[in-house]
Design a protein around this nucleic acid. Structure first.
Lengths: 205, 205
DNA sequence: TTTTTTACGTACCGATCGATACAGAATGAG
DNA sequence: CTCATTCTGTATCGATCGGTACGTAAAAAA
């Protein structure tokens, strides 16, 4: 098989695949996997069903790609938080970031990784599993970061990195649920502040 | 019009409406409003479509009644928590109760009030709104309880009942999301404990 | 008994679901 | 040019969606 396939052959695509995926992501974000019909999706993307299937596979594939785009876009605060220098600053950046991201004017309220498919019938079971994995990967990344923080000494040696990570993700998920229901950003900032009150103090500047 | 209508006239109902509603509640709990089809529901309820429509109205009505039953059943821990004698005990009972209720063996993982319709298309918008209202009513009940606690002196006078209530509901919602994804009960108990570490201490026994 | 009222089972409604067959259109390769 | 390849729009597929018409069964009322 020819491993490299040039895209220069055949009729060129008549739409911007990135922009179309962005719109699909927003529909899934607002309506969830099962609540987003192919008609909703393709109308927002500005393309026909045939073009969508040719470019993205099927609805499940489109959802996965939309989730990837969500990770690199609206949820990119998580990666930035992980690169903060101390555990406390990681925790603060993570919760502040989730508060801001779930209450962005002009974007659907809440988090695609939470409301995209929390519960679903048979048709949405793959999406549901993908999002559970997505959240658990976030916990794992936070846990590894906090393990490093213990080694580096900015968390107490008896701290539980796994529990701290699970705690942060749980609060962030709750913030997403509240945001989805219309709770204003200012209220959620108070919640995030409260959740960080008991965080172990930095032992380094 | 005759204001009181006796149920003794006509062919008696051939099924237990309470038991049927219980099964419907569990289907909505596991699959969400949009993910639960009439076929899923009526098969679990053990009745035909016609009987369901005659007894419960339509899918939206059935969902509302299932939500009421959920409040009085799996979510009854909330009412009991509100009757605890001090604010701290209210908060503890609320989070412990939500941890237990969202990880009950033999029941769907998570909370119907969260995953029943967090995001939805046009068809599920009513259910989505009903659940947002349901969560906000919980916040209001907690807030009123904490206002009383301030008056009664078991919360500091500068405590913010609204923020404390929102905080508790947010953590409980996050616990529900995590439970829905399969996080074990023991992990969530740690989360609930951590969330209560910074709670204002009781000033009364 | 007959009549009235309510519940039930079957069979079906139009609409919408995700997904495709097909033919025409637009490009590079030869 | 012709041919192969890829994209696009139309028109549709079978399945399923929520919801119902209709005739029958089972009870109380007359």
């Amino acid at each position: 098989m020819e491993s490299r396939r040039k895209a220069t052959v055949g009729r060129p695509r008549g739409f911007d695949a990135d922009a179309a995926l962005e719109q699909a992501m927003r529909v899934f974000w607002r309506q969830g996997y099962e609540g987003a019909s192919l008609t909703d999706l393709t109308e927002a993307m500005g393309i026909s069903r045939t073009s969508m299937y040719a470019a993205f596979g099927n609805k499940e594939d489109l959802f996965r790609k939309a989730l990837d785009r969500y990770s690199e876009g609206p949820a990119s605060y998580a990666g930035r938080a992980l690169r903060e220098p101390t555990a406390r600053r990681v925790a603060t950046a993570f919760l502040v970031g989730s508060t801001l991201a779930t209450t962005m004017p002009g974007c659907p309220a809440g988090c695609l990784g939470v409301q995209g498919a929390l519960a679903a019938g048979e048709a949405g079971s793959h999406a549901r599993g993908a999002l559970a994995d997505w959240r658990n990967e976030g916990v794992a990344l936070l846990r590894d970061r906090f393990r490093r923080a213990v080694e580096e000494g900015d968390l107490p040696r008896d701290a539980d990195p796994e529990a701290l990570a699970r705690y942060l993700m749980t609060v962030a998920n709750g913030i997403a649920v509240q945001a989805s229901g219309g709770t204003p950003r200012s209220d959620l900032q108070l919640v995030a502040d409260m959740a960080l009150l008991n965080w172990p103090p930095d032992t380094r500047p």
